[in-house]
Design a protein around this nucleic acid. Structure first.
Ligand SMILES: [Mn+2]
Ligand SMILES: [Mn+2]
Ligand SMILES: [Zn+2]
Ligand SMILES: [Zn+2]
Lengths: 146, 146
DNA sequence: TACCTCCCCGCAACACTGTTGCATTTACCC
DNA sequence: GGGTAAATGCAACAGTGTTGCGGGGAGGTA
């Protein structure tokens, strides 16, 4: 399903800005910050429109979002094909390269809260160093010590 | 253990700023944002010193920290008596009043990540509406509809 | 086609968190 | 009480995200 179809199905005006932003998120398979989306867009795209569009896509359930370890929101459309429970999975964030990926293999685990509390959702971020960054680090060390 | 003892034990200079900031965190039992700490401090306390102190307390393992749903760090010293695994528990954040609390009853659940990845830690935030805010909401509705 | 209305967009301004550099002051050890 | 390294306060900055508003364009109606 392409960007135009997704917007049409939600009865959202398929403007050029929305289509191109959603296309970026559909192409990349991992959560992107507004800055990373902007970098993949033709220059001159307005910052506020981008923020508003990302928020719209999120509120319409087209994308899910998650806070990274710097406190910035990242948006991801990798499961926009599955209408139900979008983003109901933990995420991994690499401390070195800053990239984030969806751990779609596992669901968010159940956690008991105080009785009388109304739970609306949960976020889980596992952080550390991704495989690519570990490989690079090993190569560097190896070259230096040999 | 009071603030002075904690700082002394870590061989950290016990300045007035550090003592008063740590005292605030020791008194409140839930994670506080820099703003909330500042509000409980005598006026005139420098913003940068507060940020630096909170970071120091965190890096020394005296407090733990967690990102709330607005992307701001919150610091909590409720388990500063237990030197091991500080902050290894999920947190609940109320969408209405903004308060956060530690779910010290449960540990952070295990989640499988891609092989070859180095996991350093994990964060989990359950969000919704706390009991107090639910009670207030019910009272309001009741009064209005009667 | 002409008109109307709604809403999307771009711009300016703002609020807030968090960081850095530097000069001054202070806590701690002798 | 000094000496020194470290902590503080101040100014400036970067970055994210929000709000208000006016113009313009898409889509509907006659
Ligand atoms: Mn995801
Ligand atoms: Mn906690
Ligand atoms: Zn990485
Ligand atoms: Zn609440």
């Amino acid at each position: 399903m392409n960007a135009w179809e997704i917007l049409e199905r939600k009865s959202i005006r398929a403007t050029p800005a929305r289509k191109s932003i959603l296309e970026v998120l559909l192409k990349e398979r991992c959560p992107l910050s507004y800055r990373e989306v902007a970098a993949r867009l033709p220059e001159g795209q307005d910052r506020v429109t981008l923020y508003r569009t990302l928020l719209l896509l999120f509120k319409e359930g087209i994308v899910h979002r998650v806070l990274d370890m710097k406190g910035t929101w990242r948006f991801c459309a990798h499961d926009s094909g599955h209408p139900g429970c979008p983003g109901n999975h933990p995420h991994f964030a690499c401390r070195v390269c800053g990239r984030m990926e969806c751990l779609i293999g596992s669901n968010l685990p159940f956690v008991e809260v105080e009785p009388g509390t109304e739970v609306e959702g949960k976020h889980m971020v596992i952080y550390g160093v991704c495989r690519d960054c570990l490989v690079k680090r090993t190569k560097k060390r190896g070259a230096g010590s040999l």
